[in-house]
């Protein structure tokens, strides 16, 4: 089924899997004002739909995403000023993390992933890519600063690789193979056209697990990036203990013993 009302995105559901697809292929899925607004709604819509257990995020066309729509910035007379308040206050809403989505999010990088596109790589749980995907960060080549997305990335992968991308700018591209070696992504799909099928398969595996246990795990692990190790473990204990007494904790072992799929409770 498809969720209506989006111009720059396609938002749909296949079974328990929600799909959020950038759909400005001619502009290499660059984010204009409208897309920015629609992303905020789409994440929340998928997060609130009780049928959705896992979200896959990808793009139409030859690019995954190429950052902010520079054409719009350059031509409509407002420029980057339109984003000043939201950036200065870090009050932004276009990724799953910004929107506090607690369902697992898989980012399926289908092609060029440039600049601002790293927001969605950094803010996803799992990242897979087509074998011909390419990663690069041209910010400094066009006189822009890269901050938020690279800050997110250096928490989740070797920092050297992020620094290299940040400073080499548009003059070098990282392959899917290198991204895999570095642990930025966990799967390369070849041939590239099988990406969505593989993403759906992976998402369906994940959808077999307890939605509530996954939400609590996600809260514990993302929360851990905000604190020192001991404090993170203490905060994690809260998320862990919240699950005690939940019906899924009886159902999981029972289903296992009876050799059947568990019938998990819906997210409360």
């Amino acid at each position: 089924m498809s969720y209506g009302g989006y111009e720059t995105l396609i938002v749909e559901r296949q079974g328990h899997i929600g799909w959020l697809i950038f759909n400005r292929p001619e502009q290499l899925n660059a984010m204009n004002n409208l897309m920015r607004d629609e992303l905020a709604d789409a994440w929340l819509e998928l997060d609130r739909d009780p049928e959705v257990r896992v979200i896959v995020h990808t793009g139409n066309g030859r690019a995954f995403q190429t950052g902010v729509d520079v054409m719009e910035i350059a031509t409509d007379g407002i420029g980057f000023e339109r984003y000043r308040d939201s950036m200065e206050n870090f009050d932004v809403h276009f990724t799953a993390w910004h929107q506090h989505v607690w369902k697992p999010v898989i980012c399926a990088v289908n092609g060029i992933c440039a600049g601002g596109a790293f927001h969605w790589v950094a803010d996803s749980d799992i990242v897979i890519a087509a074998s011909d995907a390419q990663f690069f960060d041209p910010h400094v080549s066009v006189g822009q600063v890269v901050a938020i997305e690279a800050i997110g990335l250096i928490r989740r992968m070797p920092a050297e690789a992020v620094m290299r991308m940040a400073f080499v700018g548009k003059y070098e591209r990282m392959t899917a193979q290198r991204a895999y070696e570095l642990g930025m992504i966990s799967q390369i799909v070849d041939p590239p056209e099988n990406l969505r099928e593989e993403a759906q398969k992976l998402a369906e595996l994940i959808a077999k697990n307890s939605p509530t246990a996954m939400r609590q795990t996600k809260k514990a692990l993302w929360g851990a990036l905000e604190a020192g190790l001991t404090d993170a473990c203490k905060n994690g204990a809260t998320h862990l203990v919240d699950m005690w007494g939940h019906p899924d904790q009886e159902e999981g072992p029972k289903a296992f013993a009876e050799k059947r799929d568990p019938d998990w409770a819906q997210l409360g």
Partner: peptide, 25 residues
């Protein structure tokens, strides 16, 4: 999470010492 349990301490510590994506996966 396959048996209805939350994963916390072990994975919290692991994301400090390994690429996070692999731990989340």
């Amino acid at each position: 999470v396959s048996v209805g349990q939350v994963s916390a301490f072990e994975t919290i510590a692991l994301i400090r010492r390994s690429p996070m994506e692999s731990v989340l996966r």
